[in-house]
Design a protein around this nucleic acid. Structure first.
Lengths: 110, 110
DNA sequence: GAACGAATGTATACATTGTAGGCATTCAGG
DNA sequence: CCTGAATGCCTACAATGTATACATTCGTTC
């Protein structure tokens, strides 16, 4: 049976947030995107740890922002979703869809 | 922000499998349902452990099947999804949907 | 009726993910 | 300088994912 690169629940949210933001995705807005869209609060640490792990798996790529940022704070680390990240997201969604098929009616659309 | 009862990826699959099967959902068919629909293989142990945990959280309820089963094997333990299980599933789906909004076009429908 | 095998469930163990809190770094402004 | 805001990283522990091995029950076979 298919191998299956496991992608956790929260990891999916992070990958999707990076996609939603597009250019200029880094820790702070990624966190905000998740909190605003899902309505649940997330710690900064949770986000950074997950970003690290996703990069480790090759699903995300990152680089440092402006070498001499005209603002406060450490240099931003920017992220983008790699091809394999997209694939993983699609697979997860596909699996969930198959399992949901036919149940929407029974449980109510929303 | 909302509390959030976390439900893992695999836990969702198990809950959904129980719903799909309806009456007479127990370990073996639950496992088969997941494997057939998602195309990924799962060990028996993974299924039973997850069923236990979901029951512990109150998302699933269980009882033993026929006291004198007319067949081989131990008595089947049957499961049903509780109200809280349905709620958890809907919340997970809702969060994922919000995060996906607008990305389908970009990534292709399937 | 003892031994075997199929169907099921349970126990145990370890890897991966989820999640938070605190420490470190950089720069603007008093 | 010192302080505060904006970021990122480190560390630790809880929850979930996942597999292997063990136990129980009953029909079948010799």
């Amino acid at each position: 049976m298919g191998d299956h690169t496991p992608v956790g629940e929260f990891e999916q949210l992070v990958l999707l947030a990076v996609l939603q933001i597009g250019q200029g995705a880094y820790g702070v807005p990624i966190r905000r995107e998740i909190e605003e869209r899902t309505g649940r609060s997330v710690s900064r640490g949770a986000v950074y740890t997950t970003l690290d792990r996703l990069e480790g798996k090759g699903l995300l790529g990152s680089w440092l922002g402006e070498p001499t940022p005209e603002r406060s704070g450490k240099a931003k680390r920017l992220y983008r979703v790699e091809r394999s990240g997209i694939t993983a997201l699609k697979e997860s969604r596909s699996a969930l869809r198959s399992m949901w098929t036919g149940l929407e009616a029974m449980l109510g659309e929303l």
